[in-house]
């Protein structure tokens, strides 16, 4: 702070702001961490409930439809019931572990090697 004490040193301030913004932006989407998703406990509970139940109900419904088309009642429904239950549990696991909505069961690897990040990451509203 003190080394940039002169009031007309706006250029370096701008540079530092740009750098801070770039760093923040580069962090976005890393580790599959959800940066901005804040809800109350009730909202979170509601979300978890939906995430658990929707794939289960949807899976059974989809299985019922497939059975209707293929005449394989009740096998598609049985299979999709268990898959839906699994999908619901995966959703809840990801939500609780803070992995966001990405696939998999552990944080994504860092994507340092992506070339697009390095060149000219500018803030969104600067155009």
């Amino acid at each position: 702070m003190s080394e940039h004490g002169t009031p007309d040193d706006l250029k370096s301030l701008g540079e530092r702001l740009d750098k801070a913004r770039r760093d923040r932006e580069a962090e976005a989407g890393r580790d599959g961490k959800v940066v901005g998703y804040r809800e109350g406990a009730f909202g979170f509970a509601f979300r978890i409930g939906l995430d658990l139940v929707i794939p289960l109900v949807g899976g059974v419904g989809l299985g019922w439809l497939i059975d209707g088309w293929l005449g394989t009642r009740p096998w598609a429904m049985v299979v999709l019931f268990f898959l839906g239950a699994g999908a619901g549990m995966m959703n809840v696991y990801r939500a609780v572990m803070g992995l966001g909505s990405a696939v998999g069961y552990r944080p994504a690897e860092r994507r340092e090697e992506r070339p697009t990040r390095e060149n000219g990451a500018r803030p969104l509203d600067e155009e």
Partner: peptide
């Protein structure tokens, strides 16, 4: 309102998210 959504896109999608703002 613009800044709010812009910040949301920037923080959650990153630089590549700009076209979808």
């Amino acid at each position: 309102s613009y800044e709010f959504v812009a910040g949301m896109v920037r923080e959650n999608v990153g630089h590549e998210g700009r076209p979808y703002f």
